[in-house]
Amino acid sequence: MPWAARVPVRTGRAMRATLRRSLVVDLGLAMACIGLGLFSLTLGTMPVSLADIARALAGEATGPVQLVVLEWRLPRILAALAAGAALGMAGALFQTLLRNPLGSPDVIGFDAGAFSGAILAMLTGAAAGGVALASFAGGLAAGLLVYAAAGGGHVERNRLILIGIAVGAGFTALNDWLIFTAPLDSALIAASWKQGALAGIDRGRLAIGAAILLALLPLGLACRRMMDALALGDDKAMSLGEPPGVARLCLGLVGLSLTATATLIAGPVGFVALIAPHAARRLARSAGLPLSTSALFGALFLLGSDCVARLLFAPRSLPVGAVTACLGGLYFVLLLRSRMRRGADS
């Protein structure tokens, strides 16, 4: 199961084949993201024709079409794509770092920390920007707390995961308590935010988030070398000129910042960071976790989930966090079936 531990040494030709395959998969996923993005511009309570959308994108639409397509749907779609990509990449980074297919940032407590920050901001009456920043800070704080409680980078992975789970449980208790005692309206808003904040996205928040991501995503892709080195084991990594402690710290910080930015944009949506790397690895059939594929799949997954959330019971919308949780559960069931067919390979 700890796939990163068994990166095989590949011959040149096999490596080229893998590379070609992952390029094809990435291209396909990118097309799918664009396609679904454009298609979902047409989805919603108000019917808008493709021609109208083309006009709106060309900046020629006015009135309700301009409002719905450019002001409401487009920012939401872009936000889902951006946050999904950030989460997908963060999941791949953390799962590599922790050498565990379930070691994603939402499982080890960062989401709970982000939620604590957001609730506290909401209860003190902060505006949307303040809530987003507080959630960013809360996620970072939880991550640093895990890092500090683990005594810096020198702790062994499984302990780090456990400490993450414990810190997450502590923050969750705090969150439950805050929601439990808050006035009804504040509690309702906080609980809704926990399940996804895509509905309330505005251009300003999206712009801030996108700007941070533009810096972080290339940085994440640049971690590729460190990931591969780490996957070979600490000694090997050292001999490749990548001190494992430094590499881990870098991966962790980039992953944490990606998670916090995704939360800033879309709220603490669960399961994207968990599922995307699995799916990406299966699609790309690569040995390690492909970062770009994972990011693209994350984007597609979150956008698809958001479409389901908006449309399944239209005009009512579901919380997107509930949809990702259900789809994530479904994915686990499928994973299990294929595993049972192949026989247990734990």
């Binding site: 309570t45 108000m46 409401w72 809704s192 005009p315 009512r316 919308s317």
Partner: peptide, 9 residues
């Protein structure tokens, strides 16, 4: 919660 598009329509 309110659906803005529904309200717009």
């Amino acid at each position: 919660p309110p659906n803005l598009e529904q309200i717009l329509m």
